[in-house]
């Protein structure tokens, strides 16, 4: 297990941010840490990257404990933070070579590695321009190239695609996928469901300091129930239907006139539902059934926890 987290807790003052987190990330796999803003994603990432001390529990990276042997952890792991850590007034190449030197590659090895990485991230042509002139996507790619100089076995990415345009985002996703295919352990935090869905082999949902779900995207989706029903109402019927259906389970008002709720997919359930609505005089105009998406999972898991 490249990253092994057991009973991790951390608070800031009297605010508990992480409260007994268990999590494992494996080589050649992408583990996405999914959660809303303020769920504790960045805190967890910073503890794994040795930037923040845990208050309880243990975190091991490639076998090394983050508190007792941070230098060994830093030799194995690389962090790409939310904010790119680049020197605008150095060239792309100078930035990468500098990182190589700080990873204690020799001068020649650092240069060689820089050229290799700049080519790999399609920055070869721009390598000798100052970073100030780079686009947002180029900056992200350069940041990632710098992260990889020391050939880390564990790559930690904190919301890597925030603020990127779709094309740059796709490029970054491809690169992360390739890295995992090459054997790197990838732990990334994100608040975008499509990102987790597309990129992650496993998704851990972090909510209020705990992991509330951990599994593949499909496993998580089936946890929410096999089918979602979407009902469209005409204007005045909506409120009454909403009142009636609220008692039947998590309900979402997803459009101006649409409601969305879980079902077991059986005809009996649908029949009962429609009968009740009919009796109340608010029969929907239209009903459709669909497989739950990751956002259904997310909402269900996080709102269920809110109520408990």
């Amino acid at each position: 297990m490249s990253v092994q987290i057991r009973g991790l807790s951390r608070s800031f003052g009297d605010r508990t941010v992480l409260n007994g987190v268990d999590l494992d990330a494996e080589p050649s796999r992408v583990l996405a840490l999914l959660g809303p803003n303020g769920a504790g994603k960045t805190t967890l990432i910073r503890i794994v990257a040795t930037l923040l001390r845990p208050h309880g529990g243990t975190v091991r990276v490639a076998g090394h404990e983050v508190v007792t042997d941070p230098v060994a952890v830093r030799g194995e792991l690389s962090l790409t933070g939310q904010f790119t850590a680049l020197d605008d007034e150095q060239t792309g190449r100078e930035n990468v070579v500098m990182t190589g030197r700080l990873m204690h590659l020799g001068r020649r090895a650092a240069r060689g590695r820089a050229t290799e990485l700049l080519e790999r991230f399609s920055l070869g042509a721009a390598a000798d321009r100052r970073v100030r002139t780079f686009s947002g996507g180029m900056r992200r790619r350069l940041d990632l190239a710098m992260s990889l100089v020391g050939s880390p076995s564990v790559l930690v990415l904190d919301e890597p695609t925030t603020g990127l345009d779709p094309v740059s985002r796709d490029e970054l996703w491809d690169v992360v996928g390739e890295l995992a295919a090459d054997g790197t352990t990838v732990l990334l935090s994100t608040q975008y469901l499509p990102e987790a869905d597309r990129l992650a082999d496993r998704i851990a949902v972090l909510h209020e300091g705990r992991i509330v779900a951990d599994g593949t995207a499909d496993e998580l989706k089936s946890r929410v129930g096999g089918t979602r029903l979407r009902m469209t109402f005409d204007g005045p019927g909506l409120d009454r239907a909403q009142e009636l259906l609220r008692d039947l389970g998590p309900l979402r008002d997803i459009g101006r006139r649409e409601l969305d709720l879980a079902s077991d997919g059986s005809a009996a359930h649908l029949h009962r539902l429609l009968a009740e609505l009919d009796a109340a005089g608010t029969l929907p105009e239209r009903v459709s059934a669909h497989r739950p998406g990751l956002d259904d999972v997310f909402r269900t898991l996080t709102t269920a926890n809110d109520r408990s």
């Binding site: 910073r46 040795t50 930037l51 830093r74 962090l79 933070g81 850590a85 020197d87 700080l102």
Partner: peptide, 9 residues
């Protein structure tokens, strides 16, 4: 971001 990068190295 520089200090975080350096501290994680």
């Amino acid at each position: 971001g520089m200090i975080d990068r350096l501290r994680s190295m």
